[in-house]
Amino acid sequence: MTTKVLRLNVNGEDTLVPVGPMATLQEVLRDKLELTSVKVGCAQGGCGSCSVLIDGELRLACLTPAEAADGCTVTTLEGLNESNSIVPIQQSFIENYAAQCGFCTPGMLVATKALLERNPKPSRDEIIEALSGNLCRCTGYLPIIKAVEDAAAALSGKQSA
């Protein structure tokens, strides 16, 4: 078993992480770097609760071999929190009661952030498409869709002002 040292930029910090051959990015982020917003819902790409940004693109950490992220910039919800860029989205989730048990919420927030970065004024159908990889067991999705609509409106209003 060969251990390789990965060079990652995680949430703005350059990090060296030793990993074994079969490690996933999910294991590196949760177990080695203690970034527990990256949830383990299914570990097979079925639920979206481990959503992260790799070089700004929405990715599932559970399906990403850690070595594939070597040299990449990785952003988890913790990193978005530090930059405050997520606050209007979080506020909208709170105001729309878009979280109940909260397990899916980090993935939903990261997926929403990725959507609004590339499409600041998404239609309802585009929002639903963007969230289609994220499962929620509690809310029935309607409050989450509304939260994304309101967050988009709040953010685009701020940009045009």
């Binding site: 299914c42 097979q44 639903i128 969230l131 499962l135 029935g140």
Partner: peptide, 16 residues
């Protein structure tokens, strides 16, 4: 798993 245990997604949800 969630791939075999099929739940409706956001797209299937009507107004309530």
């Amino acid at each position: 798993d969630f791939l075999g245990y099929v739940m409706p997604g956001a797209a299937e949800m009507p107004e309530v």
